[in-house]
Every structure is written in C-alpha cells, then in structure tokens.
C-alpha cells in the first residue's frame, strides 16, 4: 500500500468512522498466533505432499502423490461415501437443530432448561464410551435396537454388516452426537432477533408459520451460514464415527476421506500421501464453501 493512496482516504474520513488500523489491531492476536503456529505446519505439510519415503529416505516426487490420488479407486470410494453422508446427514441434522432451537426458545416447551441440557450431553461423551455404546446398541445379534425392533414385530436390521445400513448407522450416530451443537448456535442467534418483531407480527395477525418463515429464518441466516459451512467441513473431515463404529467397512462402504487420510499417515506411515489427501480435501472444502457462501449471501440479498 502506498502513502499516496492512503492520503485521500484519510481525508475522506468523516466523523464516526474508524481509523484504518483498527480492524488490524483487533486481528493482531490472531495474526501473531497464526504466524507462530500455523504457517510452518501448513508449509511443511504442503512440502511433504510432494515427497515420498523411499527406502527410509524422504524423497521429492513432485506431484506424484497427487497423480496417484487421481487414479486411486479407494480415494474415490471414500470421496463418494463422504459426499453421500454429507448430502443426507447435514440437512437432516440442521433441520432438526433448527426445530429444536425454536422449541428450546418457546414458552410452549416445559422444562426447557432440562431438555436443552439433555440434547447437549452427547457432545461431551468421550470417544471410547461412544464406541462401546453404539456397538452395544447396534449389534445385530444382541443389540438393544434390534431387540426393540423384534419386540414390536419388525425384522432385525444388519446395522453394521450391510453397506447401506452401515451408512445409516453412521448418519444416526452423527446426528445423535452433533445436533445439540448446532441447536446451541441457533439458540444463541435467536436471542439477537428483537422480540418486538414478533409482537408486531402477532398484532398484524401473522400465523406462527409466517412468523417462523419471515422473522425467525431471516434472523438466523448468519447462524445458518455458519452451521452449513461448519457441518460441511466437519463431515468432509469425518473420522470418529466410522473409526469407532465400522472401521470403514463393510468393504469400504463407510470409509471416509478422513479415515483414509489417517490410515495412510498413521497406519501406513505414508505422510506424503496423507498430506496430499489433506490438501485435496482442503481444495474440495474451499470450492464447496465458496459455493455455499455465494448461495447463502444471494438469498440474503
């Protein structure tokens, strides 16, 4: 930035506008922390994605890992699985979270404080307990869920053994785990919608549905953008659920990109390939996030 450019801008400052430096000052801690702890790891990982360990030596292979990735059928399988989970689970979960947040905020719901907490509990559950728990619940022979299904005359479901049902199991587990998370974000945002808007609408004779559609939803738009983008990123990086529930099986039906990355890095010690997967994933996330931002902003206008 040149000083000649700065000059007119400074003069244009009117009373009530912030000094140019202010936003940078607010961002300063973040910039320092990123410079200290993020720049090196990200560059290192990028460099690593161009290498391969050959006979114990880290060797530069150019875009070799990316080329290999482009023709790796397991990667495409993982990508497809991840996208299927993404397009089914994220709308389901966010829809539920939205309704929940509205309920949590409504005087119609009794014992609100209790239920808010109840839906939050799963987020805190440790991974080990989570794994044992769902294996206990979804076990096809003596799992609780099949026991209940049979007791009402329904057939047993091969929760983890069938490629489709295994995905369904992952989606159920994810929804159980994270719905409360999004509901909390919506609930916080709901608080910023002025109560007068609802009162005015009620006086104008708007139905509950109209109030939801014309006041609640637009008011929640920033939170919706946030949760859509975050859930998308979280699902594209999905690791925990397939790791503890299905180990990516049966026959890779629930293998996700996150799991494949972990396997390559920490099981096969191929950190070069794992880094390449990481950067390709980042690229995919970047494209999807841009589309989402564009789409959500357009609707906002």
């Amino acid at each position: 930035m040149t000083s000649s450019k700065l000059q007119p801008a400074t003069r244009r400052r009117w009373r009530g506008s912030a000094p140019r430096l202010t936003p940078y000052l607010f961002l300063l801690p973040v910039l320092v922390l990123f410079a200290g702890f993020k720049v090196y790891p990200y560059i290192y990982a990028a460099w690593l994605s161009l290498t391969k360990i050959i006979k114990g030596q880290t060797t530069f292979v150019g875009l070799g890992n990316y080329g290999r990735l482009a023709t790796d059928p397991i990667f495409y399988k993982a990508l497809t699985n991840t996208l299927i989970i993404l397009v089914t689970q994220v709308p389901l979960m966010l829809g539920l979270a939205l309704l929940l947040a509205v309920a949590f905020n409504s005087t119609l719901l009794r014992f609100r404080a209790f239920w808010r907490t109840a839906y939050f509990v799963p987020i805190v559950m440790g991974l080990v307990a989570y794994g044992i728990l769902f294996s206990t619940l979804l076990n096809s022979h003596h799992g609780l869920v099949n026991f209940l299904l049979e007791s009402v005359g329904l057939p047993r479901v091969p929760w983890l053994a069938d490629p489709v049902w295994a995905k369904v199991s992952i989606i159920i587990a994810l929804t159980w785990h994270y719905t409360g998370n999004s509901a909390v974000i919506y609930l916080a945002q709901l608080q910023s919608i002025p109560g007068e808007l609802y009162e005015a609408a009620e006086i104008d004779g708007a139905t509950a549905w109209q109030r939801f559609w014309h006041i609640t939803l637009p008011g929640l738009r920033p939170a919706i953008t946030l949760t859509v983008v975050l859930s998308t990123i979280g699902t594209l990086q999905l690791f925990d659920e397939p790791y503890v529930l299905t180990n990516g099986g049966p026959n890779n039906a629930t293998l996700t990109i996150g799991m494949y990355l972990y396997q390559n890095g920490f099981k096969y010690f191929d950190f070069g390939y794992a880094s390449a997967i990481g950067y390709v994933l980042t690229g995919i996330i970047g494209v999807i996030a841009l589309v989402q931002f564009h789409f959500l902003r357009e609707r906002q206008a």
């Binding site: 044992i132 206990t136 076990n139």
Partner: peptide, 19 residues
C-alpha cells in the same frame, strides 16, 4: 459361523457363554 462384530464387548460375551 456367527456374525459377531469385533471389540472387547463381544469377546466378553463369547467367553461368558452369552453368545
């Protein structure tokens, strides 16, 4: 061949004779 998912819980149930 019974289809019993892996994991310690299922191993336990086999040795206890419950599976």
């Amino acid at each position: 061949v019974a289809d019993i998912p892996g994991g310690w819980d299922n191993f336990m149930m086999q040795i206890k004779g419950q599976t």
